[in-house]
Amino acid sequence: MEGYYYVYILVSEKDEKKYTGYTANLPLRFEAHNLGKVASTKHRRPLKLIYFEACLSQEDALKREKYFKTHYGKMYLGKRLKSYFTGQEKTYE
């Protein structure tokens, strides 16, 4: 959808680490990550999109991204994604 900014969480299928980012074009950004065009994730491919939120402004998306990178944000995501991680070998904290 146009006019939204997306905060997203990726998980590496290689090292099982998470990556948090934001973008105005989620499909294009996800493709860039998996094609190795994003320096911070290019050696961690393949990546899987496990969560996203839509925000009405870039400022809100950036604030949300920063929150997700804090201790409390990681706790929130752990609870929010509990059903995703159920059955996974490792937990993501």
Rank of each mutant, 00 (worst) to 15 (best):
P27N: 11
A24I: 12
Y92P: 08
K18S: 11
V38W: 02
G78H: 10
L56F: 10
K69W: 03
T70L: 04
S57R: 05
L62S: 07
V38M: 08
Y92D: 06
K14C: 11
V7M: 09
E65T: 07
D60N: 11
K42I: 07
C55T: 00
S83W: 08
N34W: 04
T23K: 02
E65G: 00
T41F: 02
F52R: 05
E2Y: 12
M1E: 03
F30L: 15
M1S: 13
L28M: 10
A39K: 14
H43R: 13
Q88K: 15
A61R: 02
Y8A: 12
A32I: 01
Y92G: 07
G73I: 01
P46E: 06
M75W: 00
R44N: 14
L26S: 03
K74Y: 00
H71G: 00
Q58H: 02
P27A: 13
Y22M: 14
R44Y: 09
L47G: 06
S83K: 15
N34Q: 10
Y51A: 09
R80P: 01
H43C: 11
H33N: 03
K42D: 08
K48T: 12
A39T: 13
K37S: 10
Y22F: 15
Y84R: 12
G87S: 06
L28Q: 15
K90F: 15
K63S: 06
T20W: 08
K63R: 14
N25P: 05
E31F: 07
R44P: 04
S40G: 10
D60K: 09
Y4S: 14
T86H: 13
K66Q: 12
K74I: 08
K14T: 14
L28A: 15
T70E: 00
K69V: 00
K48N: 12
G21P: 03
K66I: 00
A61I: 02
Q88G: 10
Y22C: 09
M75Q: 08
L10E: 02
T70R: 05
K17N: 15
T23F: 04
E2W: 13
P46C: 06
L56W: 05
Y4L: 15
N25M: 06
E2H: 10
L81M: 08
G87R: 08
P27D: 15
P46K: 06
F52V: 09
G87T: 07
E65F: 03
I9Y: 07
K48M: 11
V11A: 02
L47Q: 04
F68C: 14
Q58M: 10
Y8W: 13
K74W: 00
E65Q: 11
Q58Y: 00
T86F: 13
Y5I: 07
L56C: 02
K42T: 10
K48F: 01
A32T: 01
L35Q: 14
S57W: 01
G21H: 03
S12L: 03
A32F: 04
L47P: 05
L62A: 09
L28Y: 09
R45D: 02
G36D: 10
L62T: 01
E93K: 12
K17C: 12
M1I: 13
R44M: 10
I9C: 15
T41A: 00
G3R: 09
E31P: 00
T41Q: 01
Y84V: 14
F30Q: 01
S12W: 02
